Simulated assay, not measured.
Amino acid sequence: MIHTALLSYGMSGRVFHAPFIHLHPNMQLIGAWERSKQLIQNDYPDLTSFESLEALLADNRVELVIVNTPTNTHFEYAKKALLAGKDVVVEKAFTTTVEEAEELKTIGEKVGKKIAVFQNRRWDSDFQTIKQVIDNQLLGTITEMEIQYARYTPSLSPKLHKEIPNPGAGIVKDLGPHIIDQALCLFGKPQSVFADFRVTRTGSQVEDYFEILLYYKDKRVRLKAGYFMREPVPSYIVHGTNGSFLKSRADVQEGLLLKGVKPDITNWGEEPESEQGLLHTETDGVVIRETIPTLKGNYFEFYNKVYEALAHDKPMPVTVDEGILVMQIIDAAYKSNAARKVVDL
């Protein structure tokens, strides 16, 4: 059993972590650090509400720590957990700088503890389907791709750590890591980066719109997010030498989790058929234009792989090196936006 504790029990702890750890047959949730409200025992009466980080790290039962606090605290808390002899899972964005990410890697290697970055969106139904289409070469050689988060949220977030300027604030480090990581999963490290950031909402003090262009030798990948996109458009647009694939962002897992549905139902992660992606391509001289079934999403796979890594010395599902590469892209994007030019990696 991997005995695990959370560093907060807000939305991320309640929705994205606790249900999966609690139901996992080889993991045991010990409790969470709760600063003001003691809420975890409302859902899990037998668990511990830790009054301080020090108390949680001093508990010898705790082997794995989930750093699911605001981004600007990730480095400090992950470092303390590693030095206390705990393995760690760190939410996105991994850290606020490349240097912090690299230092965590060095510390982890020195103390012999493992680090994973929580990139659950790799196990979204839509991304799993996109990856299958590309891996099966249904489009031929990929020439370009666009991934975007299209939202209509003109109001500022009540979470002040997202809106008040600090090293972890802004949409680039909030939504950016999800789609940067997905691009890297599909195509690896790009050669260079160009980025354009904007402030669009009334009263916003941080960037709330971005376009990031990843340059590869044989393709371009455009990443985009903003808060003034009322009409839904395909979140994934992939073009290749044989055809195209368009897919909405329709994974159902977050919506179900927010409603309190536990991830142990038989149809967990199944999208409605109405959200199937459109495949328009040519195979063996035959042109086809049809929707194709969407694969199931399943965030459980992240924690299955964390268990395998800790119990059987397998690689973490999202490695520290992959986390560092995402931070390198983010760092290059900030430099590009500031200089208004392409930045080589």
Rank of each mutant, 00 (worst) to 15 (best):
V62S: 05
E102N: 10
G260I: 08
V221F: 04
A58G: 08
N166S: 11
R151L: 11
K224G: 01
D87A: 11
A338D: 14
I288R: 01
F94G: 07
D208G: 01
E146R: 12
H161V: 09
E270K: 07
V193H: 13
L7I: 01
S12H: 09
R289D: 07
L175Q: 04
F187C: 00
F75T: 05
A338H: 10
D321G: 02
L82T: 02
K37F: 12
H280D: 13
A183F: 01
T319L: 01
L64T: 09
A311L: 04
K259W: 06
A195E: 12
L39I: 09
M327K: 12
H74M: 06
M27I: 10
F16S: 14
R222T: 08
E211G: 01
G260C: 09
A101N: 09
K217P: 00
S244L: 07
T283R: 08
S157N: 15
P165Q: 05
Q276C: 05
G269W: 12
H178D: 12
T97E: 03
V133P: 12
A339E: 15
L257W: 12
V221N: 01
L278R: 08
A150N: 10
V88K: 04
V238P: 02
T96Y: 01
E207W: 00
T291M: 00
G203S: 04
E102G: 05
D321A: 07
Q148V: 00
A55F: 02
T96H: 00
L138A: 10
G240P: 07
T97M: 04
W33M: 14
Y215W: 04
N304K: 13
A250P: 05
G13K: 07
A225H: 03
K224H: 08
E99T: 14
M145R: 02
I180A: 07
K173F: 01
V65A: 13
S336Y: 06
S204K: 03
D46S: 14
Q128I: 08
T281Y: 05
L325R: 06
H3T: 11
M229H: 13
L104M: 04
A55Q: 15
I115H: 03
E301D: 14
P154C: 06
E76L: 09
H239V: 02
P263M: 14
